[in-house]
């Protein structure tokens, strides 16, 4: 947690074509586990392929050799750095 006082960025904050690394997925509920299972584990590289207008919902994200479409509330669960 480098930047004090700053809320960590999430997947839905990425721009098209931008890459990042997953920091964590919060909580341990079904949604979190499924996100982990499909490859959003800490250290995984992700790249935003496209996002829909307006409000970046949903987004298409490349992770671990696959592409997934996520709605905003799903994408926001994945914190990145």
């Amino acid at each position: 947690m480098g930047d004090v006082g700053q809320t960590p960025r999430t997947l839905s904050g990425l721009k098209a074509g931008e890459s990042a690394v997953v920091e964590r997925v919060d909580a341990d509920d079904l949604l979190a586990r499924r996100l982990l299972e499909i490859g959003f584990y800490p250290g995984a590289k992700v790249e935003l392929v496209a996002s829909m207008w307006p409000a970046d919902d949903p987004v298409a994200i490349r992770v671990g050799g696959a592409t997934f479409a996520l709605r905003r509330q799903e994408a926001e669960r994945v914190k990145i750095r």
Binding site: R34, I38, A69, L70, R71
Partner: peptide
């Protein structure tokens, strides 16, 4: 309700 998408876009 919250609705899930989480859909794989295959190659």
């Amino acid at each position: 309700d919250t609705h899930l998408l989480m859909l794989e876009l295959p190659d």
